[in-house]
Amino acid sequence: MRYQQSDPDVRLMLRVRDDDAGAFEELVRRYEPRLVRLMQTIGPSRELAEDLTQETFLRVYRARKRYEPGAKFSTWLFTIAGNVARNSARSVSRRQEVNEVDAPRNPAATSNAQLLAHTAMEASGLMPTRLAEGEERAEIVRMAVSSLSERQRMALMLSRFENMSYADIAKAMDLTPKAVKSLLSRARVNLKEVIQPYMESGTIPKEVQ
C-alpha cells in the first residue's frame, strides 16, 4: 500500500496486472529511453541495447500477473533489466565482446561514458582540464569506462542517472547496501586511476597511443 500511494508508476503497473494495455504503453514510453541508455553503457551497442530493452519489457509483461508492489516500480524494473543484461553477457563469446568494443561508437554511448568518467573527477575535487575536447579525450574516457566491470558500470548508471539510493541499487542488483557503497567506491577509484595521469601530465595510457 505504501508504494501504491507514493509511486504513480506502481499504480500504472497494477493496471498492467489487470491487463490495461494503455498503462503498459505508458510505462514503456516513460522508461524505454532510460533502459536503452543503461544497456548502452553496459554494452555500448545501440542495436543490442534496444534488443535487451525489449526483452526487459517482455519479461515485465509476462510477470504482470505475479506483480506485487514491494518496492518502487523503477527498482523492480531495473532488477529485471540487470538480470537481462547479465544473461546476455553470459551468452556472448569473448570474441564477440571484443568486436563490440572495437565497433564504431555512437554519440549516446560516448556521452554516457563521459558522464560516468566525470563522476571520478567530482569525487577527487580535480577539474578535468586536460579532457576539454577532441578525439583523444573520447578515447581516454572510453578506456576508463571499459576498465570497469559490468556491475560497476551498472551501479554508477543507477546512481548517476537514476539517482537511486544505495538501498534501491542494492535491491536492483541483489546486493547489500554496504556492497553497493563498496562497488561505487571501487568504480570511482578505477576511473580516476585511468584519467588522472592524463589530467596531470598528459600521459596517455598505452592502449590509447
Rank of each mutant, 00 (worst) to 15 (best):
Y61G: 04
R62M: 04
A63Y: 06
A63N: 14
R66D: 10
R66E: 05
Y67M: 05
Y67N: 13
Y67W: 09
E68Q: 09
P69W: 11
A71T: 11
F73Q: 09
T75G: 07
T75Q: 09
W76T: 03
W76E: 01
W76N: 04
L77T: 14
T79Q: 13
T79I: 01
I80N: 02
A81H: 06
A81T: 06
A81I: 03
A81Q: 06
G82V: 00
G82D: 05
N83W: 06
V84E: 02
A85S: 11
A85H: 03
R86Y: 00
N87T: 07
S91N: 09
S91E: 10
V92P: 00
S93H: 01
Q96L: 05
E97Q: 10
E97I: 03
E100G: 11
V101I: 12
V101G: 04
V101H: 04
V101L: 10
D102V: 13
D102R: 15
A108V: 13
A109R: 00
A109C: 02
A109D: 00
T110A: 11
S111Y: 07
S111N: 07
A113V: 01
A113G: 04
Q114P: 00
L115K: 14
A117N: 12
A117H: 07
A117T: 08
A120S: 08
M121Q: 10
E122A: 13
E122Y: 09
E122H: 13
A123M: 11
A123Q: 13
A123Y: 06
A123K: 15
A123F: 06
L126F: 12
P128Y: 02
T129W: 06
T129H: 02
R130K: 12
R130G: 10
A132H: 08
A132Q: 09
E136I: 08
R137G: 01
E139T: 03
I140F: 02
I140L: 05
V141F: 04
V141L: 06
M143Y: 12
M143R: 05
A144K: 00
V145P: 13
S147L: 00
Q152C: 02
M154Q: 15
M154I: 15
L156P: 05
L156T: 10
M157C: 09
L158Y: 12
R160C: 10
F161G: 09
F161I: 07
F161R: 15
F161S: 11
M164C: 07
S165C: 08
A167P: 06
A167Q: 14
D168F: 01
D168A: 06
D168I: 04
I169W: 03
I169L: 04
I169H: 12
M173L: 14
M173I: 05
D174E: 14
T176C: 03
P177D: 04
P177R: 11
